[in-house]
Every structure is written in structure tokens, then in C-alpha cells.
Computed example of a mutant assay.
Amino acid sequence: MEKKALMKNNPIIAAVRDVSLIKKAVLSPVETIFLMTGDIFSIEHCVEESRKYHKSIFLHVDLIKGIANDREGIKYLSQKVKPNGIVSTKNQLIQAAKKEGLLAIQHLFMLDTQAYENGIRNVSNVQPDAIEIMPGLMPRIIQELYEKIDCPIITAGLIKHPNEIRKVIEAGAQGVAIGEPELWYLDFKYS
């Protein structure tokens, strides 16, 4: 199963939870940033900073204040803010982003078997460019998903140690979104 590459060399994604950390993220060796905070007034600056340092940036639209969670909000982001893409739990926002030419990452919470099965169904119906699953410490689930769906898998949540990053990558995750700035600087490359 051939999956599109979102991260070319470094699987670590800077999950920025405080706008004041954007500079630290763009100066780190990560290639990709997930902006998980901010508002309509701060996101443009974050996107500009990311571009200046040749980083891809995805806006977690469910967490950004002042952007409506509708097609018009996505259209505004696409035309005015111009991130590489979005992250969202909402099927309609994933579809709207794809229509606007943005990459779309569907965020899934894997809480139980029903959430797992619903997630597979949603991915099949919506066809995001990648999925982000939480919690990230589930190598068996990552491996099963890798075999069942045809899009890259990004893990997030509860990952605190380099060996945990290695385990989820070995299980099939293409990327690991990490909120701990000191882990953004790990010299971790694909094997």
C-alpha cells in the first residue's frame, strides 16, 4: 500500500499549543507544524513565520478562535491565511478543505472499538490526506490501521520519550505530533 509522504525526512511534528512557541518551532529541525492554538489575529503571523523558515503548517481549526467551523471559514483560511492544510475532527471541514485545495488531516480519537470502526468508516467516506489518531501510544492499533486504510497515519498524545516515537514509527505511523518543545530537536530520521 503506497501512502503519500507528508513528512519527507523527519517524522516529528511540532504540535504548537502556545503561539509564543512558534519561533521555537520554526527554528527546530521539524519540517511540519500543527498549530493547535491561536485566533484569527495570530494565525497569519504563525503561517508567515513558518513559510519564512520553509516549514509546512497545518491549522487545527477546531481549536482556533474566531474561525467559523464551516465552509466559509475554510475558504477564508485558504484564500487569506494560506496554510498548507488543516486538522479537524469534522468530516464537512475535511471535505471543504480538500475542495479549497488545502491538505486535510482528519483527527480521530481512538477511545474504544466503536470509535475505531467509525474512524475507519469516516476515513473511507471522506478520504482525508492523512489521519491523526489519539492517543498516540497504540502500536497495535497503528499497525492495524496502516493495513486497513490508504492514507498516512500521524499519532499524537501522551508521547514523551524517544523510544515511544520509534515504536509508533515502526508500527506504521508516518508522523508523530509532539507538544514537548525539547523533543522537536531530536535528530530522528526515517529508517
Rank of each mutant, 00 (worst) to 15 (best):
E147N: 12
S124K: 15
R121K: 15
K98G: 05
R166M: 03
A171K: 09
V126A: 10
K90T: 07
A14Y: 03
W184N: 04
I133Q: 02
I133L: 09
C151Q: 10
H45D: 14
I120V: 15
A97P: 00
K52H: 08
K148C: 06
V16A: 05
P162V: 06
P162H: 13
E170Y: 04
A173L: 07
I57G: 00
E49C: 14
P128N: 12
K160R: 14
F188G: 01
Q95V: 15
F188A: 02
I153T: 05
G175R: 01
Q92H: 15
H107R: 14
L186C: 04
Y53C: 09
M1L: 11
S50Y: 06
K80Y: 11
V81M: 04
Y190V: 12
L77Y: 01
I74L: 03
D150V: 11
L93Q: 06
S124L: 12
V123M: 09
I64P: 04
G73S: 09
Y190C: 07
I154W: 10
V81W: 02
I142C: 06
K8F: 13
T155M: 10
I40F: 04
H60K: 01
P181V: 12
S191K: 09
I86Y: 01
K80I: 07
P83Q: 02
K80W: 07
R140P: 01
K4G: 07
L6T: 01
L6I: 14
Y116E: 12
E182T: 15
D18M: 04
S56W: 08
I169Y: 00
A96K: 00
E72H: 11
E170Q: 12
A115C: 15
I22M: 08
T155R: 12
D112Q: 12
A15I: 05
W184E: 02
I133V: 15
L93Y: 03
R17C: 00
E48C: 10
L27D: 14
L77Q: 00
E72P: 00
V168P: 01
Q95P: 01
H54V: 09
I105G: 03
R166P: 01
I22S: 03
S78E: 07
A97E: 10
I22W: 02
L158N: 08
I74H: 03
N122H: 09
L21Q: 14
S56T: 12
K23W: 09
A104E: 11
V81A: 03
A96P: 04
I43Y: 05
I67H: 05
Y146D: 13
E180P: 00
I94Q: 11
E180Q: 06
M36K: 05
A171Q: 07
K167Q: 04
I178H: 00
K80D: 11
M138T: 09
E182C: 08
E117K: 15
V47N: 01
K160N: 14
M7H: 06
D18P: 02
K65E: 10
M134C: 08
G179L: 02
I74Q: 02
D62A: 05
D187G: 11
V87N: 01
Q143P: 02
F34Y: 13
L103W: 10
K148D: 09
A104N: 13
